[in-house]
Simulated scan of single mutants.
Amino acid sequence: MSARNAPVLLLENVQRHYEEVGKRLDVLKDANLTIETGEMVALVAPSGAGKSTLLHTAGLLERPNGGEVYLSGQACSGLNDRQRTARRRNDIGFVYQFHHLLPEFSALENVMLPQMIRGLSQSDAKDRAQELLDYMRIGQRAAHRPAELSGGEQQRVAIARAVANAPLLLLADEPTGNLDPETSSYVFEALEALVRQSGLSALIATHNHALAARMDRAITMQDGKLVPFDVKAAVKASL
């Protein structure tokens, strides 16, 4: 597959199962998904449906038991651990429900670290980290450690860290799930603006239909497969 015109993410008949006490649990069954450059896709599904498994497989944290995961046209299932780590570090950003910031470092240092691991100089990493925190409207809190930040501030730092290395793809697992409705909307607005401005592709798992409706399209999981989800109808039904 040519990388030039390839989608950022392509899942082709992906299968993922687990063995539990002698029983096989099939989570993904021939799952197919295409996400193009700049596309923002909502993943809406109930707890236990396999959203995290899908995100981990798409993000090269787990290997599929069958099928293929392509990033910008490159088949990734056959990559060794070092190659998979390099692709995650350079091309994929992760945001989780809990911020997972390093508590002993400041907000600025948390955003600097992935850049320095990639090889950027401390000075350049600091400049970009401050720029991202300013963009997320939290630049004035750059010197504060995570424990000194509110939940919404922590999550905005986590988002800045996720995009610090200018990835091709952002994967987010309930990024506003731990926040109150007002803070959730505020954080999502910042996330959406960053994704749109940078031209990122994003797959964002959320229970919030109103947030899902703001994305380009929505999908859900049914019996291990990925199918379109009519989020507008879901929002209307909830009114």
Rank of each mutant, 00 (worst) to 15 (best):
A45C: 07
R196H: 11
P167E: 06
G78P: 06
L239A: 12
M40E: 11
K232A: 12
D230T: 06
V95E: 06
A142C: 06
A166P: 00
G93H: 05
L71R: 06
S201W: 03
C76N: 11
T85P: 02
L60Q: 09
D26G: 02
K23T: 03
E153F: 07
L171G: 05
A75C: 05
L33I: 03
V157L: 10
G22L: 09
A86I: 01
V163K: 00
P167V: 07
R24H: 00
F94S: 14
N208A: 09
S201K: 03
Y18I: 00
D216N: 14
S201R: 02
L101Q: 13
L61C: 15
N32A: 06
L102V: 14
S150N: 05
H17L: 08
Q154K: 08
A210R: 14
L133P: 00
R214W: 04
D26V: 07
I117E: 04
N80M: 13
E12T: 00
S106L: 12
N13Q: 15
R217C: 12
A31T: 02
S201E: 02
Q222L: 07
E12D: 15
V195N: 03
P103K: 15
Q155E: 04
H56C: 10
G50L: 11
V41I: 14
L149S: 12
R87W: 12
H207K: 11
V157F: 08
S106K: 12
P146F: 06
E189I: 03
A205R: 15
A162H: 04
V21K: 10
V231E: 11
A166W: 01
T53Q: 03
A3E: 03
G177P: 09
H207A: 13
M116Y: 07
R156K: 08
A86P: 03
S185P: 02
L60P: 07
H144R: 11
R128P: 01
A212D: 07
P146Y: 08
